[in-house]
Amino acid sequence: MATAPRFWRQNPSRYNLIGIKCNSCGKNYFPPRAICPVCHRKSVGKIEPLKFKGEGAIFSFSEVHEGIDEKATLKPYLVAMVELDEGPKITGQVIDCDACDLKIGARVRTVLRKLSEEGSAGVIHYGYKFVPVRDKKE
């Protein structure tokens, strides 16, 4: 189970997709990391925060039926690996649609939703999930 401080620490990335850009090689990473895996030591001092737009395409997806107790009211739910337009891939749930609406390559964007809660009396954790892009605005 997640605990409040561990989640809270990641809020900037979970709410607003704050990752990093390595100004040594120009590659983008999400979530933030201290060292660029391409440039190693050359990247020290050249890493700066980058806010990702949250738009990308489905690289692969799965409809989850078993495995996480606290997601019971969501079951079955969709999980996808998404390739963001800025480069990195990330993993997250896809919501407000059915598996049959999805295919590899489909465009999605992030929204803020509840990720989990620590029981009915505990802290609620929020973060990004994906919704299909239905038109240019939505």
């Binding site: 009211t73 969501l74 803020l112 939703r113 509840k114 929020y126």
Partner: peptide, 16 residues
Amino acid sequence: PGPDEDTITISVEAAR
């Protein structure tokens, strides 16, 4: 609301 929506997520989406 979806099972993962509440007043907070609705407020955030409206504010965004």
